[in-house]
Simulated assay, not measured.
Amino acid sequence: MRFATYVHDGEVSAGVVSDAGVHALPGTTVLDLVRAGLPTAIAAGEQALDGPAVPLDAVRLLPPLEAPTVRDFVAFEEHVEGVVAGMGMGAGVVPEWYQAPTFYFTNPYALHGAHDDVAVPPGCQRFDFELEVAVVVGGVVGSDGASLTPEAAREHVFGYTVLNDWSARDLQRREMQVSLGPAKGKDSATTLGPFLVTADELEPYRDDEGFLALDMRVSVNGELVGQDLLSNMGWPFEELIAYASRGTEVRAGDVLGSGTCGNGGCLAELWGRRGPESLPSLQPGDVVEMTVEGLGTIRNTVVAGVELPPVAAARPRPRTRTRS
């Protein structure tokens, strides 16, 4: 089942999507449905399918849900190989990458819908896309969980959606030199959509190792730039959820990104493999389209962002410990 959050006639609604369009689910939100658990959500969706549908081209799709938190992992080895070279951070994958999944928290207030315009961040000259899939925590009973095993974590999967982790590579590179971040290099925009597809719909794609073998593609201005399989992740989503919950908890509605796929999942990887001038950075007017098998397509146009004055540098600081 595919759930959506959308605007129609000026009103924000939750709905379930069919071939006819989107059927309203009045009095609730997609986050409410996630917290209620899969059986309750699917029952509500089936009931809504009996009602009228609004054609998808008559609505504006918002992010499928208002995520309370968004974690983004880096689970594709091939992506890491290219990016570390492209950003001047060394060569090859550091041994620590293989020891455990790594993630950062990104900005839940900067989520964009499947067809929204996306602005270049202030001060950015090297704007980039990142093709990913995100899992949404919720599962059978919509419950929260702490220190989950991977087996238990599977019961906490509600569904999946396409994720574009927009990245200001020049800002990110400076931040990473401080051994902290990313921060402003990553928090200006994250696209989620077009829908939240429930976990049961993707089970036919699960391979013998427990990975989802979904085709992933990204194009810029109609030209294919990258293509990979989601099953090339280093860890399945259940292990990412389990790791995120170690010594703490994950809650229904939390979004966990897979990290960028390999084989051209972002420009930075291609810059690392082919050279920094091999492909231009994203510019206003560029259209980035991502399609993931079983999940759908998101298509965003890059637009000019707000212009702000340069950030002030830190003041020189003496090391005296007495008042002058």
Results as ranks from 00 to 15, higher is better:
1 M>T: 06
10 G>V: 02
12 V>Q: 08
14 A>L: 13
14 A>W: 08
15 G>Q: 11
16 V>T: 01
19 D>Q: 04
30 V>C: 12
30 V>A: 03
34 V>M: 06
42 I>S: 08
42 I>Q: 03
44 A>K: 11
46 E>T: 02
60 R>C: 06
64 P>A: 12
66 E>M: 13
69 T>P: 09
70 V>W: 07
70 V>D: 02
70 V>Y: 05
71 R>C: 10
71 R>L: 07
74 V>A: 08
75 A>D: 13
79 H>S: 02
80 V>Y: 00
84 V>G: 04
91 A>I: 09
94 V>I: 12
97 W>L: 01
102 T>E: 05
106 T>W: 01
110 A>T: 14
114 A>M: 13
115 H>P: 05
120 V>Y: 01
122 P>I: 03
123 G>M: 05
147 S>C: 12
161 T>M: 15
163 L>F: 10
168 A>H: 01
172 Q>C: 09
173 R>Y: 04
173 R>N: 15
179 S>H: 14
181 G>D: 06
182 P>F: 00
191 T>Q: 14
192 L>Q: 12
200 D>S: 15
205 Y>K: 11
207 D>C: 06
212 L>C: 09
219 S>T: 13
222 G>H: 01
226 G>T: 09
227 Q>D: 14
229 L>S: 03
230 L>R: 13
237 F>C: 03
242 A>Y: 07
252 A>K: 03
264 G>F: 00
265 G>N: 04
267 L>Y: 04
268 A>C: 07
273 R>T: 07
285 G>C: 06
288 V>P: 01
291 T>Q: 04
296 G>Y: 10
299 R>I: 08
307 E>R: 07
317 R>M: 12
318 P>H: 06
320 T>L: 14
322 T>Y: 10
323 R>I: 03
